[in-house]
């Protein structure tokens, strides 16, 4: 558990450094997703960095593709990508494209960035597993703002009806989107009841509490006959004081000065972890 927390902390540092170096990007939604992505890649998922095309690997799709720095960092931690790439994010010729691009990083299961697409693609993978008698599982992370896209609910309805139980939808419920708070743009509430009404098993957790994340993923694995939606209450910008709940940091890179401050805060947090 402590190791996972340390990993999440390192990933947060990478995210801040990468986006700072790039001069553009989306720190807020990357930081809110860091604990869940860590739990998936370093505890829950069956995968092998030596074989990104292993047919029986579990799949993760980052449907909120703008948060891709968190995934690049996890890929570096896991060994899919070299750490040397870190300063190349968003630069011409780099495999680290501004949004997930399967053409350049094959470990990405989908090219996303246009919100709303990920869950449907995940259902395709999940259905293929069923057709091929494979037991891999599929995880799709969406933004809360992203839940406003109609396609999400087309996918949700289909999965519930088809009882696709090898898929887990995770909503990074950080309460903010691009222009404002979700509740001020187009409120999702009652969100759990919506997913439940589409015949999903629902679990509401604190998305920064590692033991709750692991427990929810375990419960999802044990849930048969229904897809599972984990609604993870999170904080946008989590871990960096001046980014937390600050909608300005949805899509703005930190200055070099702010990177320094953020890293020192995260290092202090790491020290406190022991």
């Amino acid at each position: 558990m402590i190791e996972l927390k340390r990993t999440a902390n390192r990933i947060r540092q990478d995210v801040v450094r990468m986006i700072g170096e790039a001069g553009s990007g989306h720190p807020g939604g990357s930081l809110s997703a860091a604990d869940i992505v860590t739990a998936l890649y370093f505890n829950e998922m069956r995968h092998d960095p030596a074989r990104p095309d292993w047919p029986d690997r579990d799949r993760f799709i980052l449907s909120k593709g703008h948060a891709v720095p968190v995934l690049y960092s996890a890929f570096m931690e896991a060994g899919y990508l070299s750490r040397d790439l870190l300063p190349t994010l968003r630069k011409l010729g780099s495999p680290l494209q501004g949004h997930p691009d399967r053409r350049t990083v094959p470990a990405l299961e989908a090219s996303t960035g246009s919100l709303g697409n990920g869950l449907s693609i995940g259902l395709g993978y999940a259905l293929a597993a069923r057709l091929d008698n494979r037991d891999y599982r599929v995880y799709v992370m969406m933004g809360d703002g992203e839940n406003q896209e109609g396609q999400v609910w087309e996918a949700a309805m289909w999965a519930g009806y088809q009882k696709i139980d090898n898929i887990v939808a995770i909503v990074d419920y950080n309460k903010q989107q691009l222009d404002n708070w979700v509740a001020k743009i187009l409120d999702l509430e009652p969100l759990q009841a919506k997913w439940a009404a589409f015949n999903w098993h629902t679990i509401v957790i604190d998305g920064h509490d590692m033991s709750q994340i692991l427990a929810a993923l375990r419960q999802a694995r044990e849930t048969k006959g229904k897809p599972t939606c984990i609604i993870a209450n999170t904080v946008k910008g989590k871990g960096v004081s001046f980014m937390e709940n600050n909608v300005e940091f949805h899509g703005i890179a930190p200055t070099p000065e702010q990177v320094k401050q953020a890293i020192s805060e995260l290092e202090r947090e790491a020290a406190n972890l022991g």
Partner: peptide, 8 residues
């Protein structure tokens, strides 16, 4: 638009 890449 630049750095955001093809999806945008």
């Amino acid at each position: 638009i630049g750095e955001d890449g093809p999806s945008q």
